[in-house]
C-alpha cells in the first residue's frame, strides 16, 4: 500500500499508476491518483473527475482540481499532457471542437458549468481567456477593448464605455502606450502590446477567472516580464490559471502548481514545494529538466 505522501514507483506507467491503490484520504474531495492537495481555500472553480475525449483519444483522465480566488495556479507538464485541454474545459471552449466530449463535474461558484440550462455566453463572460498567440480583432484598439463590453451591454452610454476601455487598458498596463492612438488598428501593435491588449479586452468584461494558455510563448523576454508583472497585479482581483512551458515562469508568477502527465494531474501543491521538494518521481524528473 502506498500512501498519498509517498512517491509512487518512478517507473510505474500511468496505467499502473491509475491502477495502484491509493489511501482514501478525504475520498470525496481528493482525486485517487493525484499526489498532493487538489483543494483550495475560497474556491471559485471546482472540478471533479473530469474526462475529455477527442474522438477515440482519451485526452484528460479523472482530473480533479480547485481554483481559489486571488490565487495564480500554474499548469505545467510536457506537450500533449492535457493541460490546455483542461484549461479550455473551464470556459467550455471545447464546445467549438466537434469531436470533443467532456464528462465530470465542473462548478463555478457552486453552479454546474455543463448543466443543460447553463448559458455558455454568461459563463465565458465570467471566465475569460487569453490565448497563446495574441489575437486582437482587425479593429481599432478602442473597439478591441470595447468589444466584450458592447456584447454584454455593460455600458449605457459612450462615457461609460470610455471609462471601461480606459480602465481596462490601465489595468493591463497599456494605457500610456496607446492613449493617443486608440483609433489605430490593434493588429499594428507589437506582439507584447497585442497580448496586453488581449488581456485588457478580457478584463473589460469583468470576469472572475482569467485563463491564460501559454500567454508568453510568442513573446520576447522583455514583453514576457511585463506580462508576468501584470499577472502579479491582476491576481489581487482575479483568479488566474496559467498554462506554461516555462518552469521559471511558473515559479515566478504562481502560488500553486499542478503537474500534468499523459492526461492526468500527477501532483498539485504550493509552487515553492513543487519546485524544491516534489513528492512524485515524475514531477521531480520534469522540474529538474530530466525530460519534457
Amino acid at each position: 500500500m502506498q500512501t498519498m505522501d509517498k512517491p509512487q514507483d518512478a517507473v510505474a506507467s500511468p496505467a499502473e499508476a491509475a491502477a495502484a491503490p491509493v489511501a482514501p484520504v478525504e475520498a470525496e474531495r481528493v482525486a485517487h491518483d493525484t499526489v498532493g492537495d487538489v483543494t483550495a481555500k475560497n474556491v471559485v472553480i471546482c472540478v471533479r473527475e473530469a474526462n475529455v475525449y477527442y474522438g477515440d483519444t482519451h485526452a484528460l483522465i479523472n482530473v480533479s482540481l480547485d481554483i481559489g480566488r486571488n490565487e495564480v495556479i500554474a499548469l505545467i507538464g510536457p506537450s500533449g499532457c492535457g493541460k490546455s485541454t483542461f484549461l479550455r474545459c473551464l470556459n467550455r471552449m471545447n464546445d467549438t471542437i466537434e469531436s470533443a466530449r467532456v464528462t465530470g463535474d465542473f462548478r463555478l461558484d457552486g453552479q454546474d458549468m455543463y448543466a443543460r440550462d447553463t448559458d455558455v455566453v454568461m459563463l465565458r463572460a465570467r471566465v475569460g481567456m487569453v490565448f497563446q498567440k495574441p489575437n486582437p480583432f482587425p479593429k481599432s484598439i478602442y473597439e478591441n477593448v470595447a468589444y466584450g463590453a458592447r456584447l454584454h451591454g455593460l455600458a449605457a452610454n459612450r462615457a461609460e464605455l470610455d471609462d471601461i476601455v480606459y480602465g481596462s487598458l490601465e489595468r493591463a498596463g497599456l494605457v500610456d502606450e496607446v492613449k493617443n492612438r486608440l483609433d489605430d488598428p490593434g493588429t499594428g501593435l507589437s506582439g507584447g502590446q497585442q497580448q496586453r491588449l488581449c488581456i485588457a479586452r478580457t478584463i473589460a468584461v469583468n470576469p472572475e477567472v482569467i485563463l491564460m494558455d501559454e500567454p508568453c510563448s510568442a513573446l520576447d523576454p522583455i514583453a514576457t516580464a511585463r506580462i508576468e508583472d501584470l499577472i502579479d497585479e491582476l491576481s489581487e482581483k482575479y483568479a488566474i490559471a496559467i498554462v506554461t512551458h516555462s518552469m521559471q515562469q511558473a515559479a515566478r508568477v504562481s502560488n500553486r502548481t499542478a503537474y500534468f502527465h499523459l492526461g492526468r494531474i500527477i501532483e498539485v501543491g504550493p509552487t515553492d514545494r513543487i519546485f524544491t521538494n516534489p513528492a512524485h518521481k515524475l514531477t521531480e524528473d520534469y522540474v529538474t529538466g530530466r525530460f519534457g
Binding site: A125, K133, F137, P138
Partner: peptide, 21 residues
C-alpha cells in the same frame, strides 16, 4: 483565422455575434 473566432467566443460572444462583428 480560427484564433479570431476563439477570441470572440472567449469573450462570451454567440456564434452569430462572432460572425457579424
Amino acid at each position: 483565422p480560427q484564433a479570431m473566432r476563439d477570441g470572440s467566443f472567449a469573450l462570451g460572444a454567440t456564434r452569430s455575434e462572432t460572425i457579424k462583428r
